[in-house]
Computed example of a mutant assay.
Amino acid sequence: MTHAFGTPGAAVAPGAACPCGSGATYAGCCRVFHDGRPAPTAEALMRSRYSAFAVGDAQHLLRTWHPRTRPEGLTLDPGHRWIGLEVLGTQDGLDGDETGVVVYRATSLDASGARHEMTETSRFARRGGRWVYVDGDVS
């Protein structure tokens, strides 16, 4: 199912579906991670990061990025809307693992309404007991 989310920084209506496509509400899914709760798995962190792009939460993106690979700043494009996420596969990234890999496809619309898809193989690591995004290969 595809969900469209408005301009980054826009409020998500109470009871709205989570942008990550989990089927749960945003408040009961990714928002708890945006508010600071550690994600329990690499996949949960990846979903929360996708949702952060969809709702314009650059601080969550920076906070959950490994300090070795994190940019100094991040500007989200207000004309870019993230409309769909499909997790294609995972490797490790569970409780007791120190690393994990998540492969996903994300769909977006640019300011002109053109549709774009990207597939990324994302690498995650546990740092201080929390999952962080290390880097990824986009295809």
Rank of each mutant, 00 (worst) to 15 (best):
T2A: 15
H3M: 13
A4L: 14
G6I: 06
T7K: 15
P8K: 05
G9E: 07
A11G: 12
A11N: 10
A11R: 14
V12A: 09
A13Q: 12
A13C: 08
P14Y: 11
G15W: 13
A17Q: 11
S22L: 10
G23F: 14
G23E: 06
T25I: 11
T25R: 03
C29T: 03
C30K: 01
V32P: 03
H34V: 10
R37D: 07
R37Y: 11
R37Q: 13
P38L: 12
T41E: 03
A44K: 01
R49H: 05
R49S: 04
Y50K: 01
S51W: 00
A52G: 12
A52P: 03
A54M: 04
D57S: 08
D57T: 08
Q59T: 15
Q59V: 13
Q59P: 05
L61H: 01
L62Q: 07
L62S: 08
T64W: 04
T64I: 09
W65E: 03
W65P: 00
H66N: 08
P67F: 05
R68L: 15
T69W: 03
R70N: 08
G73V: 04
L76G: 09
P78M: 05
H80N: 14
H80R: 15
H80E: 14
H80D: 13
G84P: 02
Q91T: 12
G93Y: 03
L94N: 09
D95C: 10
E98R: 14
T99C: 05
T99W: 05
T99K: 08
V101A: 07
A106I: 07
S108K: 06
L109R: 11
D110R: 07
D110Y: 08
A111P: 07
A111T: 10
A111S: 14
R115A: 13
R115P: 05
H116E: 12
H116S: 15
E117W: 09
T121R: 15
F124E: 00
F124L: 07
R126H: 06
R127M: 14
R127N: 03
G128R: 09
G128I: 13
W131Y: 09
V132N: 01
Y133T: 02
V134F: 01
D135T: 10
G136Y: 00
V138S: 12
